[in-house]
Lab assay of single mutants.
Amino acid sequence: STVKVRLGHLEVTLHNVSEEDVRELRELWKNGADEEDLRRWLEEWKK
């Protein structure tokens, strides 16, 4: 499914993403990950 995730002022649209992935991303964000960390996660996730 396609999910729009809003993290601060960063809005990311993920395609074919699982609930688990979204949860993981939100956890990262809650734990103080900055945009760099999130971008890195997204790069990994896209592979």
Rank of each mutant, 00 (worst) to 15 (best):
S1Y: 15
T2Y: 10
T2C: 08
T2S: 09
T2W: 10
T2D: 05
V3K: 02
V3F: 03
V3Y: 02
K4D: 03
K4E: 05
K4Q: 09
K4V: 15
K4G: 02
V5W: 01
V5H: 01
V5S: 00
V5C: 04
V5D: 00
R6W: 14
R6K: 13
L7S: 02
L7Y: 06
L7Q: 02
L7A: 04
L7M: 09
L7T: 02
G8S: 04
G8H: 04
G8C: 03
G8L: 03
G8Q: 04
L10W: 15
L10T: 13
E11C: 13
V12R: 02
V12N: 01
V12A: 03
T13S: 05
T13I: 14
T13P: 01
T13K: 03
L14S: 00
L14Y: 02
L14T: 00
H15F: 14
H15L: 09
H15V: 08
H15M: 08
N16D: 07
V17E: 00
V17A: 08
S18N: 08
S18C: 04
S18D: 05
E19R: 07
E19Q: 12
E19A: 13
E19C: 07
E20F: 07
D21A: 15
D21Y: 13
D21K: 14
V22Q: 09
V22E: 09
R23W: 11
R23L: 13
R23M: 12
R23T: 08
E24P: 02
E24W: 11
E24V: 15
L25F: 06
L25V: 03
L25E: 00
L25N: 00
L25S: 00
R26K: 10
R26I: 13
R26N: 11
R26F: 15
E27W: 09
E27L: 11
E27Q: 09
L28G: 01
L28S: 01
L28N: 01
L28F: 05
L28K: 04
W29Y: 14
W29D: 02
W29L: 15
K30Y: 07
K30R: 14
K30A: 14
K30E: 06
N31E: 05
N31Q: 12
G32Y: 04
A33R: 02
D34V: 10
D34L: 10
E35S: 08
E35Q: 09
E35V: 12
E35N: 05
E36P: 05
D37F: 08
D37H: 11
D37T: 15
D37K: 13
L38V: 08
L38D: 00
L38G: 00
L38K: 01
R39E: 06
R39D: 03
R40P: 00
R40N: 10
R40H: 08
R40S: 07
R40C: 04
R40W: 05
R40V: 09
W41Q: 01
W41M: 02
L42R: 01
L42C: 04
L42Q: 01
L42A: 02
E43R: 11
E43S: 09
E43P: 01
E43G: 04
E43Y: 12
E44K: 15
E44N: 15
E44R: 15
E44Y: 12
W45F: 09
W45C: 03
W45E: 01
W45D: 01
W45Q: 05
K46T: 12
K46I: 14
K47E: 06
K47Q: 10
